[in-house]
Design a binder for these strands. Structure first.
Lengths: 200, 200
DNA sequence: CATTTCATGTAATCGGTTACATGATTAG
DNA sequence: CTAATCATGTAACCGATTACATGAAATG
């Protein structure tokens, strides 16, 4: 079972297709129009990536000729694709990922509750939080030690990084609360069914 | 005058070499050891990049055989390289750069005061600040409008982005103050020379 | 004398960028 | 009928990743 090289762009495509089967054009538009992590909206990136994913059996396409428009090739996840996406999302939060590749981390998080459910998202947030609890003090120490010997703008650039991580730390706490509140609201949901008991 | 394609990595190399003539090995170590914007420390990235920069005449190398160690190839900027670096650093702060490529923006800033002086850094910060003053409210509006219709974790991911930009906004203000304070300290420097008058 | 550290390189591969090509459909 | 939008692709180029190769000097 080779869990071979799948690029971040490819995972982003898998995640979006998981949320809703889409054409290449739809996906491009998503990248241009939404604030989604700054991916290239260029056809030269997306269509080949979709082709590769299909060749690997992670997505499957059907040509839609129903509407009057030009034929659209709609992709959806295969079982293997769903599995690959979930495996990617299930990876633990590592220090290394926090240091480089925060973007990828947030991308994973953005897809998380839909694909794995809110519990997984909370685990992710807790892991990230405790990783940050270790990392932020180290960064601050580093800044205190080496800052004075650096050019002022270099020191400030580093300071900006530290502030970002601190912000992220606070955000993680907030996000956990948001998930807990959302879970609480679901229990006595005012709109949903009168269908007697859920479970337990 | 072709201002051709120079990669971010290549600019990082130019910036570091500007601060201090260095060997490929030195530069690698800088990337691994410092918190510098998460560049690859792999020889397969750096040595070819240095080779290309030399071929383009932006850096020049001399082999140092003085010490007992293996020969080290030390690079330093040429006039053209210095010019290219300064041109890169002088680019105005655009909205587009803020949306994608914040890393590159901070990298530029980190090299700025050494290469262009504190005044340029302050201009940069002011530009970035006013760009953010326009962007952050837009992002907040976007979040308010579309947030409720998104999956919770997607909304939170977006919220994290907004918080980062806000943090950056505050940082820019702080950084300007830091530069002003530094300039003030230079006037009546308490440690520096007793060598009668500096200038003026 | 073996291992680690210093130090520079090369080759295969692969994905992203840029730019171009094409063609159908809808709106003015 | 022309322009804009929808929609999918291809080809050239280039740089980054990974892994391998080499070799000298310091360290134990």
């Amino acid at each position: 079972m080779k869990t071979a090289n799948i690029s971040v762009l490819a995972y982003a495509l898998l995640g979006l297709i998981h949320q809703k089967p889409s054409s290449g054009y739809d996906l491009r538009k998503t990248f241009t129009e939404t604030a989604l992590g700054s991916f290239s909206d260029s056809p030269g990136a997306i269509y080949p990536a979709l082709g590769r994913l299909e060749k690997r059996g992670l997505i499957a396409s059907t040509v839609e000729d129903s509407a009057g428009l030009r034929r659209r090739r709609i992709y959806q996840l295969t079982d293997a694709g769903d599995q690959a996406l979930k495996q990617w999302l299930s990876q633990p939060v590592t220090r290394n990922e926090i240091v480089r590749g925060l973007d990828e981390l947030m991308l994973r998080f953005a897809f998380m509750d839909r694909a794995l459910g809110p519990d997984a998202a909370i685990v992710f947030l807790r892991d990230m939080g405790s990783e940050l609890d270790g990392y932020v003090p180290e960064l601050k120490q580093y800044l205190r030690d080496l800052g004075p010997s650096m050019p002022l703008s270099a020191m400030l650039a580093l300071d900006s990084g530290v502030r970002n991580y601190q912000t992220l730390q606070h955000w993680a706490v907030y996000a956990i609360q948001a998930f807990e509140k959302s879970a609480a609201n679901k229990n006595n949901s005012p709109i949903k069914p009168a269908r007697s008991g859920g479970h337990s």
